[in-house]
C-alpha cells in the first residue's frame, strides 16, 4: 500500500481522515448506499431506544474490530482471513456481552436479542474485509466509527418514523396523547398506524430515505 509510507507525517485529523468519518454519514452510508445491514435495520427499528442501543453496540464492535484486524492485517494468512474476521467479531461480541451481564445487567437485558444480530451484521464483516485488512490502525478506527455512526443515524431516522406513527411515542414518551384514555390527538379521532410497527414498513421507509438521498445527490444513482 502506497498509503502506508506517507501517513507517518499526516496529522490525526487530516482532511482525508475526517472524510473517513463524514463520508459514511451521507454519500457513502453503509445502509442507504452500500445497502448493507438491512436485516437488522428492519428488525430493531420499532422503538428508538432499541435503535440507540443497537447502534452503540455496533459502533463499539466495529471500532474495536477494525483496530484489531488492522493491527493483525500483515499476519493474517489470506486463505483463512474471513474465518479470522469472524472469530474476531464473535469474540468481541461475547466479551461485550459477558461484561455487560456482570456490570450493567439492565443494559444486557435490553441487548439480549441483538447480540446475535451484531455478529451477522454485514457492515462489520464488510468493513473488516474492505478497509481494515488494507489500512493502518488509526484510519481503520475512524472508518469503523464513521460507518457505525452512519448505520446508527439511519436506524434512528427509521425508528423515529416507526415509533412516532406506530405507537405515538418517542423514546417511550407519549407525543400525541394517551391512546388508551383517548386524550390529546386521539380525542380528535387520530389512530396509530399499526402497519408502522410491522417489519415491511421499515423496508418502505428505508426505500423512501434512499429515494430522497438520490434525489439530492444524482451521482449516487446507479447505471443500469
Amino acid at each position: 500500500m502506497s498509503e502506508d509510507k506517507k501517513t507517518k507525517s499526516e496529522p490525526l485529523f487530516s482532511k482525508k481522515n475526517r472524510k473517513l468519518i463524514t463520508d459514511p454519514l451521507t454519500d457513502n452510508n453503509p445502509v442507504t448506499v452500500q445497502v448493507l445491514g438491512i436485516c437488522s435495520a428492519l428488525a430493531i427499528t420499532v422503538q428508538v431506544e432499541q435503535a440507540l442501543v443497537m447502534g452503540a453496540a455496533v459502533i463499539f464492535v466495529l471500532v474495536l474490530g477494525n483496530l484489531i484486524i488492522s493491527l493483525l492485517r500483515n499476519l493474517i494468512p489470506s486463505r483463512i482471513r474471513i474465518i479470522v474476521q469472524l472469530v474476531v467479531v464473535a469474540s468481541l461480541v461475547i466479551i461485550v456481552n459477558e461484561i455487560l451481564k456482570a456490570f450493567m445487567p439492565d443494559v444486557s437485558e435490553k441487548l439480549s436479542v441483538f447480540v446475535g444480530l451484531i455478529i451477522t451484521n454485514c457492515i462489520i464483516m464488510g468493513r473488516f474485509e474492505a478497509f481494515a485488512m488494507g489500512n493502518k490502525p488509526w484510519p481503520s478506527v475512524l472508518d469503523g466509527l464513521g460507518n457505525g455512526l452512519g448505520y446508527t443515524i439511519l436506524l434512528i431516522l427509521v425508528a423515529i418514523a416507526r415509533e412516532l406513527f406506530g405507537s405515538g411515542s418517542i423514546l417511550g414518551a407519549q407525543v400525541f396523547g394517551d391512546s388508551l384514555n383517548e386524550t390529546g390527538l386521539y380525542a380528535l379521532g387520530y389512530e396509530n398506524n399499526n402497519l408502522m410497527i410491522l417489519p415491511p414498513m421499515a423496508l418502505i421507509i428505508v426505500g423512501i430515505i434512499i429515494w430522497i438521498q438520490r434525489l439530492k445527490n444524482k451521482a449516487l444513482i446507479e447505471d443500469h
Binding site: 461475547i94 466479551i95 461484561i99 456482570a102 445487567p105
Partner: peptide
C-alpha cells in the same frame, strides 16, 4: 481470554 472472562465474571452474574 473467553474462558478466563467467563469464569471470572460468573459469581457477579
Amino acid at each position: 481470554i473467553l474462558s478466563l472472562l467467563s469464569v471470572g465474571l460468573k459469581p457477579i452474574q
